[in-house]
Write a protein that binds this DNA or RNA. Structure first.
Length: 259
DNA sequence: ATGTCCGCGCGACGCGGA
């Protein structure tokens, strides 16, 4: 069994105590992190290693930043940045192989305000990422693409859909781009496990959103066909969102059977 | 429109980003 988690930490420096507590209490084998908000040299490698994890990361000053942690062996890096997106200066993707599973960790652009240049950047990024997802599927290997997609896939995934129709996370262009990836043959793991449940992974810091359960589902696990067959469980570590000095996202995890 | 948290540059608050 392999347990893999994704967690948008919203600043790894400020989040370090919460991150370490979560790693200790839930013990994922692999953890994909987003929004490090730290330059490459400020990644807290010693604390992560003391917690039992090897790590690779793609940092950036102030914003973005992604990392892959593993306690089942060194992550073997495959890509840093989405392939064929070399002009992208933002640290939003890192990909590794761990125990014969390809793990892609992404932080998709937010895209607000929409319309505008940030929304254009989001759609362009999704287009290039979609091509990479297709290339990955062609390898026919166990692969997953996880992280903060900044896309609300359906009306079921937001507490009040009508309030989000103009938002870059829920606009038709974003949702269509996301569904185009699924149509290639990727499986939305949490939705597959819980077809009808309300599942949220993010609650903003405003207006007591968490207390009111005014959430969004924007952190996703997409599985290639060989991994879909191995999916046994998944969930959201919602309790973490209630901790002191916490992120606005909660960690999400899945479990995969050994082949 | 509101609201809150993060990192930054500056010089202990204001700003961009989310």
């Amino acid at each position: 069994m392999m347990k893999i988690a994704t967690y948008n930490v919203n600043g790894i420096t400020a989040r370090l105590p919460v991150l370490l507590r979560w790693l200790e209490e839930t013990a994922p084998d692999v953890a994909c992190l987003q929004e490090l908000k730290a330059p490459q040299e400020k990644f807290p490698l010693e604390a992560i290693e003391n917690a039992g994890y090897k790590a690779i990361w793609h940092g950036q000053k102030s914003w973005n930043g992604v990392a892959i942690l593993s306690r089942i062996g060194e992550p073997t890096e495959r890509h840093r940045g989405v392939p064929d997106n070399d002009e992208d200066e933002q640290s939003r993707y890192i990909e590794a192989e761990i125990n014969d599973v390809i793990v892609g960790c992404l932080y998709l652009p937010n895209g607000n305000p929409a319309p505008g240049p940030k929304f254009d950047y989001k759609l362009r990024w999704m287009d290039i990422f979609t091509r990479h997802a297709a290339a990955l599927l062609k390898e026919e290997k166990p692969a997953l693409l996880t992280g903060d997609y900044n896309v609300i896939p359906t009306e079921k995934d937001v507490y009040k859909p009508e309030r989000w129709v103009e938002d870059a996370l829920f606009r038709p262009e974003s949702r269509e781009a996301f569904h185009k990836i699924l149509e290639q043959g990727w499986t939305d793991a949490l939705r597959k496990l819980n077809p009808d449940d309300t599942i949220y992974t993010y609650w903003d810091y405003f207006r007591n959103a968490f207390g009111r359960n005014a959430g969004l589902r924007i952190d996703h696990f997409l599985l290639s066909p060989p991994l879909k067959k191995r999916l046994t469980a998944g969930g959201v570590d919602k309790q973490v969102r209630g901790w002191e000095k916490t992120s606005d996202h909660a960690p999400v995890w899945i479990e995969l059977a050994d082949k």
